[in-house]
Amino acid sequence: MITLDNICKRFGAREVLRDLSFSVASGEFAILFGPSGAGKTLLLAILAGLEKPTSGRVLIGGSDMTHVAPEKRPVTLVFQRHALFPHLSVFENIAFSLRARHTHRGVVRQRVGELIALAGLEEYAHAKPDVLSGGQCQRVAFARALASDAEVVLFDEPLSSLDQVAKAGLMSELKRLHRVKKFTALYVTHNLEEALALGRNLYLLDDGHVKRSAQTDQSQNCNIL
């Protein structure tokens, strides 16, 4: 479970996040929806430990992680522009987290092989990211995030730079990965259509804090918006 407790973040006199509190239950796929500049990416950076809040607490699985370094948190982040390592192949990108934790070579080969198959990237295992399409890059980024064995996966508008066809394919891919791996997910987007298509639990971030939240129903009607 992720809990943000009265998070504030100021840059000089400018307060970007104000007394922000909300929780995401374990195994839930939550969507944080909000306009550009609302502080969605900043919120994810605070959750991942890449930014420190000015005040407030970040609780993950009941433990206070506010001052814990990013590499020690059970959280990973899928970046908007993939952030794949350009000097590493698809296999090496996915294996990065396992190797960083000194996982046995055989286990790395097996785990990465499984994730490559799960993401449908068998043909590209030895390709460098610069020869992949945007959609393929994002699939590598998903697989790489899952290889980190993080309990919580944060998604920072990962589909925003893709065309509609690639986006639709990846959304169902993402839902399938969530069903299989059962991680807790927080997905931020400014795209309402994407938000409604992906998750049942929506949070609206505007003017520095989460204003309202609601569950979308199967017909994708959302009573908060």
């Binding site: 590499e71 522009r81 952030a83 987290s97």
Partner: peptide
């Protein structure tokens, strides 16, 4: 974003 990605991948 690259060192940040490495950090969230537990490096």
């Amino acid at each position: 974003s690259l060192p940040a990605a490495a950090a969230v991948l537990r490096a």
